[in-house]
Design a protein around this nucleic acid. Structure first.
Length: 468
RNA sequence: GCCCCCAUGGUGUAGCGGUUAGCACGCGAGCCUUUCACGCUUGUAGCACGGGUUCGAUUCCCGUUGGGGGUACCA
């Protein structure tokens, strides 16, 4: 058999979303794992809906995910002459006929028949119409049935009587999706069509067209399961947060996203889910892909992302995280200084800011509820008093800060029955006073990084607020 | 309505006639601990239902139910 050759054929009518990304990924995995080729074709024949900048987005996101393609990108609009030639060929062969029915007329006839059928009723099939303004060209679906051995769904069969005489070319002369899609695949040597389940119906038409155009050996098909939302509906750009660019902006790592996407509808036999893409390429088999829809679970994506973040080298983490902190020397320096402490805590790069921002803003955002709760205890006031004194001339190191907080806690009476300082309780008011938050980085390191002057100022301000 | 497809815990999957039905996320408990997170231990929960086939069905077949996709002179 010839070299496997598959393609990802997005239409630039929206930003790349995770469903398309998965489709691209599975094509890519298949190609890379089989020594085949993976090509890109931009299906931009719908001039009214296409926006060039969306093509850029699609390409950018594929690159971001590490999905590379072979050869030149095909723009479907450049191939109009080929599509037109195919249409002529169909006409010459008598495989198509002119139809001047309007949608309203078709609907009216269907409704009048009362048999529940809604497709095209073949009204013009034998009228022998000539080309005329307003007429479209329909494919004359032959008798019989059309079937193919789908790599993921097994044998799929359509009785041709259930396949509408679909429009091949609009009244404007512009060819339609199935025609362009089929012709392009045939003429660019695509022999593996791996696409979403939403295309199974098109495949019957594709095959009929392929045959009518005499393209020879048909491609192998694999229809991937759709990605669905919690309502079990196909992911929609309109109602679901699915833009790959958005995930990137939220600080998801491309490796994590791509690993997670590979796990939807497919799973490694050895139960090891998080692994290098090279291993996934080696293990992936298109026939192992599940045929039932998969829920896109952000919670699991988040977990995987956290794993990938923690696995980053310190340098790599700093490099990636720096895009999520203010572009100032101070912020960059602080990130570099505290990177390991942040890295083990976050699951998305954009969380970096919430851990470090108290270090570079003048007044950190205050968690009112946590504050109120913390200062309910009289001893908290004392801690704030003592810690200021102790911190004033403490060693400005994490150890020195810890000693100060410990001492303040002891002096304030945060002592357990065994006589031990209750550090957990003693640090709470200090943490909120300094960072504004109940949770965050290890305090000693955080305070050390903040500096003595600012720490004392915040402590004093908090003490004042506590008495007010 | 019609056509096509799907069905293992809440979620994603492993299983491909005989298993204590595995793993992961989530959720619960505990440990660790200066908060949080990580990590570790542990608990929770599943083969949709009904018929067959078979010595034996989660696994094969049929039906039911449930779910999804398609049904454009969009792609």
């Amino acid at each position: 058999m010839s070299t496997p050759r598959c393609r990802f054929a997005p239409s630039p009518t929206g930003y790349l979303h995770v469903g398309s990304a998965q489709s691209a990924l599975f094509n890519w995995l298949f190609a890379r794992g089989s020594g085949g080729e993976f090509v890109l074709r931009i299906e931009d024949t719908d001039a009214e809906r296409n926006r060039p900048e969306l093509t850029d987005n699609i390409l950018d996101m594929l690159r971001w995910l590490g999905i590379d393609w072979d050869g030149e990108i095909v723009h479907q609009s450049d191939r109009l002459d080929r599509h037109l030639a195919a249409v002529e060929k169909l006409e010459a062969a008598g495989a198509v006929y002119w139809c001047d029915c309007t949608r309203d007329e078709i609907d009216a006839r269907n409704k009048a028949r009362k048999d529940g059928r809604t497709g095209y009723d073949r009204h013009c099939r034998d009228r022998g119409l000539e080309k005329a303004p307003g007429s479209a060209l329909r494919f004359r679906v032959p008798d019989g049935k059309t079937s193919w051995p789908d790599k993921v769904r097994g044998e799929v069969t359509f009785e041709n009587i259930n396949v509408d005489d679909f429009v091949v070319s609009r009244s404007t002369g512009a060819p339609l999706f199935v025609l362009a899609n089929t012709v392009d695949d045939a003429e660019t040597g695509i022999n593996h069509v791996i696409r979403g389940e939403d295309h199974v119906n098109n495949t019957a038409k594709y095959l009929l067209l392929w045959q009518a155009l005499g393209f020879g050996e048909v491609p192998t098909f694999a229809h991937l399961p759709l990605l669905v939302n919690e309502q079990r509906k196909k992911l929609s750009k309109r109602r679901d947060p699915v833009s790959v660019a958005d995930f990137k902006a939220e600080g998801y790592l491309p490796e994590a996203m791509r690993n997670y996407l590979a796990l939807l509808g497919w799973g490694p036999k050895d139960d090891i889910e998080i692994r290098p893409i090279e291993e996934i390429v080696a293990m992936f088999r298109i026939e192992d892909v599940s045929s039932s829809p998969a829920f896109f679970d952000v919670k699991k994506l988040l977990h995987i992302n956290g794993e990938y973040i923690r696995a980053l080298t310190r340098e790599d983490f700093i490099a990636r995280a720096s895009e999520f902190v203010p572009d100032t020397p101070e912020a960059k320096a602080l990130l570099e200084d505290l990177a390991p402490l942040v890295q083990e805590r976050i699951k998305r790069l954009d969380e970096v800011d919430s851990y470090l921002s108290f270090l570079w803003v003048d007044v950190p955002e205050l968690d009112e509820a946590a504050w109120t709760k913390a200062i309910k205890d009289e001893r908290a006031h004392k801690v704030l008093d003592h810690v200021q004194t102790l911190l004033a001339d403490a060693d400005w190191t994490p150890e020195g800060v810890e000693a100060a907080v410990r001492g303040a806690g002891e002096a304030a009476g945060f002592i357990n029955p065994e006589g031990q300082v209750q550090l957990s309780k003693a640090q709470a008011p200090v943490r909120i006073a300094v960072t504004g938050q109940r949770i965050g980085l290890p305090l000693w390191e955080g305070i050390t990084a903040l500096g003595r002057e600012r720490t004392l100022a915040r402590l004093a301000a908090a003490r004042e607020r506590a008495s007010a």
